[in-house]
Design a protein around this nucleic acid. Structure first.
Length: 353
DNA sequence: AATTCGTGGAC
DNA sequence: TGTCCAAGAAT
């Protein structure tokens, strides 16, 4: 009789969990010592913040958010602009919009408590495959296959999966499913992520310190850093625009960007359209004696580079194209980084600090 | 399936 | 300086 294929799950999860018990990072969203499961609200908030964002960047924002809005009820009742401003600088602002929508939905449709199942979590705004699995396993103890870029890399190396991404993702998921244990699935996921962050790093992985190296096909191949194989990335196009700095009595004109798209819903300095060539003074927010400064502001987004000319003008009291904000208090406006840069370039040098 | 979404740190 | 990369989701 053909033997059932012996799962390697215990071979991987045993040593990995032992390693995790000894080396887990101490993080504010993880369970306190002695507590079996962390607060689902804190797990969710941390997972949203950590999407494509480093632990070091998230730490202070997580502290600020949990202090100001400690639970779903508080966040659902919060002023939305205040939440968006608090998110300023973190990037991927759709996360903040979905954060608000999700909190409201949890309060309105789930009695202020998260549904415990991965499938139900998956239906909430801002919660995709990864985050649903992460919350279900970490906060609720469900077995779930949690796959982020760390797990993707670790699994691709463990099994020496050579199919380039993204085509290789189904094979990675199938392989990952074979090593996720029934117990401590959340710890297993966090252990895989910690391992990916500290040992199984993208470059120069520390295989000699890895608890899994004896069962790793990538290590055996002699070139573990070659996994996962990835398709080449497209070059970033260069775009140009103009920022309009209208000043009146120590105040500057700010606008609210459209609710969706790049920097959607965020407070901003007025700009014209962003195009393939410098647009100059076209599309100013109000009629004024605009003067182009010599300096420009450069910024790099995920898929294009942007160079912004800086136009300044005095404005009169009848200008009502947006919101007048005290320049001395510009840092509290919640501006995305590109506009914070521009404000510093214009107001910083001459404002005496 | 391929694009569109930010930002800052490491190398 | 340029490139890659990070606890991805939505469309």
């Amino acid at each position: 009789m053909p033997a059932k294929p012996r799962s390697i799950a215990p071979t991987i999860s045993g040593p990995l969990l032992a390693w995790y018990d000894a080396h887990a990072r101490i993080l504010p969203w993880r369970a306190a010592p002695g507590e079996p499961a962390p607060d689902p609200y804190r797990v969710w908030l941390s997972e949203i913040m950590l999407q494509q964002t480093t632990v070091a960047t998230v730490r202070p924002k997580f502290a600020l958010f949990t202090r100001r809005w400690p639970d779903f009820a508080a966040l659902a009742a919060a002023d939305e602009h205040e939440v968006m401003s608090a998110w300023a600088g973190l990037g991927y602002y759709a996360r903040a919009r979905n954060l608000i929508a999700c909190a409201k939905m949890v309060v309105a449709e789930h009695g202020g408590q998260f549904p415990g199942s991965e499938a139900a979590l998956r239906t909430l705004p801002g919660i995709g495959d990864y985050t649903a699995a992460a919350i279900a396993s970490i906060a609720f103890g469900e077995r779930a296959v949690v796959i982020d870029t760390n797990v993707e890399r670790v699994v691709a190396r463990l099994f020496a999966i050579a199919t380039p991404l993204p085509a290789g993702r189904p094979a990675i998921r199938a392989a990952a499913d074979t090593i996720v244990p029934d117990q401590r699935s959340g710890d297993f996921a966090q252990a895989m992520m910690d391992l990916g962050a500290s040992i199984c790093t993208p470059r120069n992985p520390k295989c000699l310190a890895c608890p899994l190296n004896q069962d790793c096909a990538g290590f055996a191949s002699g070139a573990p850093e070659a996994f996962p194989v990835k398709a080449a990335k497209a070059a970033k196009p260069q775009r140009y625009g103009t920022i309009f700095w209208a000043e009146r009595g120590g105040q500057v004109l700010l606008v609210r960007r459209p609710p969706r798209g790049l920097l959607g819903g965020m407070r901003a300095l007025p700009t014209g359209p962003w195009a393939d060539a410098a647009p100059g003074l076209a599309d100013a927010p109000l009629a004024a004696d605009w003067r182009l400064l010599d300096a420009t502001v450069a910024h790099v987004f995920t898929h294009f580079r942007l160079e912004l000319a800086l136009a300044v003008a005095p404005a009169d009291r009848h200008s009502n194209a947006g919101e007048w904000w005290p320049i001395a208090d510009i840092e509290s406006a919640g501006l995305p980084t590109v506009f914070a840069k521009a404000a510093a370039a214009i107001a910083g040098p001459g404002s005496g600090e």
